[in-house]
């Protein structure tokens, strides 16, 4: 321990560059060494880490896109993006070994890098206000995506014309349904059905329309005219759900997703996502930030030329 410390303090300056990225390369490595943590911090805040992460992310996105041909979108995303490591089978063994950093790891590093860089380098001034907005917006965007992954629940409502429903179903999960059948004594019938969730309000499908362009089978629009009833809130009104026009109500969003039974059945995708507003905020913040920053740079770079003809 002592020797390590002496080493670390004796030739501190030249060793800095060997600690890039927080990885120790020489015998000077020691956790108790304050200098080591400084170097780690600088590595985390460094622009080189940013570039490395951006590059890795690009590789991952390319791999994820190509893999979708075989794995499908969800499979590819799970393998490359929503994992800490991309694994591959070790030949002749049953083990999977990590071969490449996954999207979650790179994204996390990028976030840490972003925060560290701001804490260490980026000055708090009007000149850099745009960059602050952009990076804060990015933080929100990634946070929003992270929260969506954790908190959002997707379910469905398949409803026929004239039918009234007060529940939504999750096609991926099932539950047991017990119902009493008439007869001597008590007999119950058990059935497996998609897991249901009851709503405090009810929806009646009044009409489903499937418009086509005249003379073709090309769909022009799908829409569901529904009656929304919420007795406790005294709500009772018509709502038209169509492509690109969802109904947002009580924290749920109802989207026109599919149809069937010769255009008498409408399938609505129901999404509960408390974080849905975050990307919108992030988008505004980043766009304004970029605009501000680039216009500032542009005016700075054109000014001297106006003075000197």
């Amino acid at each position: 321990m002592k020797r390590a410390k002496r080493h670390g303090s004796s030739n501190l300056q030249p060793d800095f560059c060997r600690y890039i990225g927080g990885v120790a390369t020489g015998p000077q490595f020691h956790f108790a060494n304050v200098q080591f943590w400084i170097v780690c911090w600088r590595g985390l805040a460094s622009l080189k880490l940013t570039l490395a992460c951006l590059g890795l992310l690009m590789v991952l996105v390319v791999l994820c896109t190509l893999a979708q041909v075989h794995l499908g979108t969800l499979g590819a995303v799970d393998r490359y993006i929503r994992s800490f490591f991309v694994t591959a089978p070790l030949p002749w063994t049953p083990w999977q070994v990590p071969v490449f950093p996954g999207g979650a790891l790179v994204g996390l590093l990028l976030l840490v890098n972003l925060v560290a860089a701001h804490a260490q380098r980026l000055e708090l001034s009007w000149r850099k206000a745009g960059m602050w907005a952009v990076h804060f917006g990015l933080l929100l965007l990634v946070l929003g995506e992270f929260m969506t992954g954790l908190l959002s629940v997707e379910s469905q409502m398949a409803i026929e014309e004239g039918q009234t429903l007060n529940y939504i179903e999750s096609p991926g999960q099932v539950e047991l349904e017990a119902s009493e059948t008439t007869g001597i004594g008590r007999t119950y019938q058990l059935a497996v059905r998609p897991k249901r969730r009851l709503l405090p309000f009810s929806i009646t499908l009044k009409d489903f329309t499937h418009e086509r362009y005249p003379g073709t089978e090309i769909p022009k629009n799908f829409s569901s005219l529904i009656r929304l009833k919420h007795p406790e809130k005294n709500e009772d009104r018509d709502v038209l759900i169509s492509m690109n026009n969802p109904l947002r109500y009580e924290g749920l969003a109802f989207y026109q997703a599919s149809f069937g039974k010769e255009d008498t059945l409408s399938v609505l995708q129901v999404v509960q996502n408390p974080a849905w507003l975050l990307p919108y905020l992030a988008c505004v913040l980043i766009s304004l930030g970029l605009l501000f920053h680039f216009l500032l740079r542009l005016s700075a770079s054109t000014k001297p030329r106006r003075v000197v003809p």
């Binding site: 996105v61 390319v62 994820c64 896109t65 979708q68 979108t73 590819a76 995303v77 993006i81 965007l141 929003g144 995506e145 969506t148 959002s152 997707e154 492509m243 690109n244 026009n245 969802p246 969003a253 989207y255 997703a257 995708q269 999404v271 996502n273 849905w276 990307p279 919108y280 992030a282 988008c283 980043i286 766009s287 970029l290 605009l291 680039f294």
Partner: peptide, 29 residues
């Protein structure tokens, strides 16, 4: 600026029409 704005607006369109902001669809990627 425009690529970023366009990409995020695409996400918002996806959110508006089928309820997910980003789906790692090849074109989005």
């Amino acid at each position: 600026f425009f690529s970023f704005l366009g990409t995020v607006l695409g996400g918002i369109w996806a959110d508006q029409s089928w309820g997910r902001f980003w789906g790692w669809d090849p074109k989005e990627n």
